[in-house]
Computed example of a mutant assay.
Amino acid sequence: MSGARRAVVFDMDGLMLDTERVALECWLDTARDAGWEITRDDCLAMVGLDQRASERALMQRVGQDFPLREISDRAKEVYLRRLRSEGIGLKPGLTALLDWLAAHSVPVAVATSTRHLLAVEKLELAGLSRRFEVVVCGDQVPEGKPAPHVYLEAVAQLGLQPAACVALEDSDIGLRAAHAAGLACIVVPDLRPPAAGYAPLAHAVVPTLREAHPLVGELLGLPAGAEAMPAR
């Protein structure tokens, strides 16, 4: 089909992996144990950003007296221990979508703000490491999301132009990055919907990857068919 896209670039945490909820709980619990009451909204300000940007966003909200390094290091320890012991859940509809894309030989990539070593471990824990030949991370580009670099690098490694790719995101930070890079972006919100000022940048905002599946098919110029909405 003329003008159809040819590849799909996935965000990771919150979009494919049910990890943002765990991270939120770890931050809140760790801060509370240290005598600091931070809010859910304080933590949500970090969603989608790379490590440095997320820490700056938090400090701006809670003040310069907050013991960032201590709380951050402890929260990460608890977070990783939980992921390694409990495993990582996949978002509804992901497996069916990845299977369908593979069956149609559609190239896929990951563009995430997460550091490379941690991203690789998460994909391994989630059983997805063999699904993606291209994985681009926040510490591999000059600037993380909402800058477009992570998407531009992923698209370059696929050997395509941005206009030939579809992005799937869960946050307005990621939406802004994908849009700035020139990709059509479908948003599947996780912990919060995209801010009203950024939602119009999305091709669509849908509740789960099941609903995103037929939209991806339309953008790729491929019929999604009845298998687009399985109960998986």
Rank of each mutant, 00 (worst) to 15 (best):
173 I>G: 09
91 K>T: 01
122 K>D: 07
138 G>R: 08
165 C>Y: 03
155 V>R: 09
55 E>A: 11
131 R>N: 05
69 R>I: 02
143 E>N: 14
147 A>R: 15
83 L>Q: 13
165 C>Q: 04
170 D>Y: 01
122 K>A: 08
120 V>G: 00
70 E>C: 09
74 R>P: 00
137 C>N: 03
54 S>R: 01
79 Y>K: 09
153 E>W: 05
138 G>Y: 03
170 D>K: 01
138 G>E: 13
121 E>C: 05
149 H>P: 04
94 L>M: 09
86 E>R: 15
74 R>Q: 11
160 L>S: 09
84 R>W: 02
121 E>W: 01
83 L>E: 08
171 S>V: 11
67 P>A: 11
78 V>C: 02
102 A>C: 04
164 A>F: 06
173 I>F: 03
169 E>Y: 00
98 L>I: 03
68 L>K: 12
57 A>L: 11
105 S>W: 02
177 A>H: 02
69 R>V: 09
133 E>K: 04
172 D>W: 11
165 C>F: 05
157 Q>D: 10
127 G>C: 06
110 V>Q: 03
106 V>Y: 00
69 R>P: 10
154 A>I: 00
153 E>T: 04
132 F>E: 08
121 E>R: 02
99 D>K: 14
106 V>E: 06
92 P>S: 06
85 S>R: 15
162 P>Q: 03
88 I>F: 11
141 V>C: 11
105 S>Q: 14
92 P>G: 07
101 L>D: 07
152 L>E: 14
111 A>F: 00
